[in-house]
Simulated scan of single mutants.
Amino acid sequence: MATFKAFLVTEDDGQFRQDVVQRSFDALPDNDVLIKVSYSSLNYKDALSASGHKGVTREYPHTPGIDAAGVVVSDRTGRWQPGTEVVVIGYDLGMNTSGGFAEFISVPADWPIQLPDNISLEESMMLGTAGITAAYCLEKLLDNGLVADNGEVLVTGATGGVGAFALTILAQMGFSVVASSGKPEASEWLLELGASRVIDRNEIGTQSSRPMLKSEWAGAVDTVGGHTLENIVKSLKFGASVAACGNVTGADLQMTVFPYILRGVNLLGVASADASRDDRIRAFGKLASMWKPARLRNMVQHVGLRGLSEQIRQMLAGQHQKRVVVDLAKE
């Protein structure tokens, strides 16, 4: 095989173009492990990379895809045996290293993790970065005292990948989960995933000049940032925590220290791309077993490489619902 199929983003005079092309293996980075990709998934960072966001990807032409699942073809270090099923999530994959939107990737030997038991390659990409980020959020909340008896837990951006996974896993664990969304048409789906109720995002996302708000949430997972995160911190119950992992509505926080020093609340930052290898193995092991979403297949849709451009457009326009699994065998 002299070439392989890839989703390629090119730049010409500041304009970015997306095409499905045949690429030479010489175009891959010179890393130790060659993996034949079976599935990838679409994340917001991929959509930014595919649209030319230089804060994500510095140089083009480039193939996005921060997630990949497939089979080891070769490994110059001898660490990975050919035929081993592996998952690569995060690190620099799909950012400045050619990513999972292609039939092959080449990565350092310490990036892959072996596919856990009780999960398929396809299911691993139903979870992907979104699932593992949700798992990190929940681990931090539980480690900081979140218990079901304390009251409702808020999940923002609930129709997105991280939000939907956090919602459904929390519900399976017995928590009463309130889903915040700007998509009223998705309310029934969110209730099916386990939400006890659904609120409009404006109920929590409108800027407030008050230093503190009514004590309401036993905990929260916030995927959007901005005024929403400010209001969550202001309305956490005494000693409660919010795990924050996104900034789609804003990166600034305009608030006082009063919620922290009067209610003792915690703002827990979650960063998945640079998590340790041990953290990845532990979190993905939970997702493959006790935290595996019961309705996983109801949370995703499948596309081939040629369907990616439309999904990217929808994601950037805020019209996206359900997680997108990229099937490399699909046209």
Rank of each mutant, 00 (worst) to 15 (best):
D149G: 06
A179L: 11
T256L: 01
Q18L: 12
L127I: 11
L138I: 13
I119Q: 13
D149V: 13
W80F: 10
A2M: 11
G225M: 00
P211E: 01
E122Q: 14
H53A: 02
E59P: 01
V325H: 04
V72F: 05
I66F: 12
L305M: 08
G318L: 11
D279K: 13
P293D: 04
T133K: 10
V87F: 09
F175I: 14
G65N: 06
G65Q: 07
R306S: 11
G157T: 14
N31Q: 15
E85D: 10
V270A: 12
V242M: 12
D200N: 14
L141G: 07
G285T: 04
I35K: 08
L316P: 02
E188C: 01
V248N: 01
L34R: 12
L93H: 14
D327H: 04
T3H: 06
S215R: 11
D252Q: 09
G70Q: 11
H227E: 11
V162K: 01
L170I: 06
S51T: 15
R58A: 02
N266W: 10
R58H: 05
R280D: 00
I169E: 08
G83S: 10
L42Q: 03
R277P: 02
S98M: 15
T249Y: 02
D46W: 05
T10G: 09
S120W: 10
A271H: 09
G83C: 12
G205S: 02
